[in-house]
Design a protein around this nucleic acid. Structure first.
Length: 199
DNA sequence: TGGTCGATCAGCT
DNA sequence: GCTGATCGACCAA
C-alpha cells in the first residue's frame, strides 16, 4: 500500500483516467478514515473537448483550479443539490481533469451510511448498500466531499490516493450526460473496472 | 425495465 | 432567464 506522488497525476487525463481505476481514494475527515476503490471515471480533455468546462481554454472562477497543479481536486456543484469530484490532470496551465463516477466503499462504511441515509451500515437495505457510492453525486455525499474540498491537494494528508497494486481489466464507453457536446458525445472516454461491470 | 419529472442553485447570457 | 459532468420518486406496462 503506497501513497501516490505528484508525478502520478502529471499525465493526460485519458491516461490518468485509466490509471485511476483500482486505486483507493481516501478522505481523512474528523478523525474518521473514509475510503473506496475507484471503479468508474470519465476523462475530460480540456481545451479540445467540447464536453469539458474548460473547453477552448475557458477560464472562470469555477474552472480556475483545473489550470493549477495536477493532483488537486476540482469540485463543482450541479443541479442545485449535488457535487462532483475530479482529479486535475495534465500539467499546470493545461486544464484537464478526470471525473470520479463511482467507488466501492472500503473504510468508514458507517460514516458513509450516515452521510447518505442517516443510519448505520448494518441497517441499510441491499439496494441502499448498492447505491451508497455508485454515482458522482452519491460518492461525494458518502465521502463527505463538498465545495470546501475544491482545490484540495491529493499529495496532502486529508485527501490522497493509495495504490495496492490492484490492476483491473478496463472497459470503455461513451460519457454520460453531455448531449450538448456535439462530436464529443461519442468519444469513448468513460472507463470502468470490468469486475464492476457496466450496465 | 424504462420513461418522465421535480428538487434547487451556481454560472452564464 | 435558462441550463446542467445528478438523483430518487413515481408511474406504466
Amino acid at each position: 500500500m503506497r501513497k501516490l506522488e505528484r508525478e502520478f497525476y502529471c499525465q493526460s487525463s485519458i491516461r490518468l483516467a485509466q490509471e485511476l481505476l483500482g486505486k483507493i481514494l481516501v478522505h481523512n475527515g474528523n478523525g474518521d478514515k473514509i475510503s473506496g476503490r475507484i471503479v468508474e471515471v470519465e476523462a475530460y480533455m480540456g481545451m479540445e473537448d467540447k464536453a469539458a468546462h474548460s473547453y477552448a481554454g475557458k477560464r472562470t472562477k469555477r474552472t480556475e483550479v483545473m489550470y493549477g497543479i495536477p493532483g488537486i481536486l476540482y469540485v463543482f456543484s450541479i443541479y442545485g443539490m449535488y457535487s462532483c469530484v475530479n482529479v486535475v490532470a495534465g500539467e499546470v496551465e493545461i486544464p484537464q481533469a478526470v471525473l470520479i463516477r463511482a467507488i466501492e466503499p472500503i473504510d468508514g462504511l458507517n460514516q458513509m451510511a450516515l452521510n447518505r441515509y442517516k443510519k448505520i451500515y448494518e441497517f441499510l437495505s441491499k439496494k441502499e448498500r448498492v447505491n451508497l457510492a455508485n454515482g458522482p453525486g452519491k460518492l461525494c455525499i458518502a465521502m463527505g466531499i463538498d465545495k470546501s474540498a475544491n482545490g484540495a491537494d491529493l499529495c496532502g494528508d486529508v485527501f490522497f490516493l493509495e495504490d495496492d497494486d490492484c490492476s483491473p481489466e478496463i472497459v470503455s464507453s461513451k460519457r454520460i450526460g453531455i448531449d450538448y457536446a456535439e462530436e464529443a458525445v461519442d468519444f469513448p472516454w468513460r472507463f470502468q473496472s470490468k469486475s464492476y461491470s457496466p450496465r
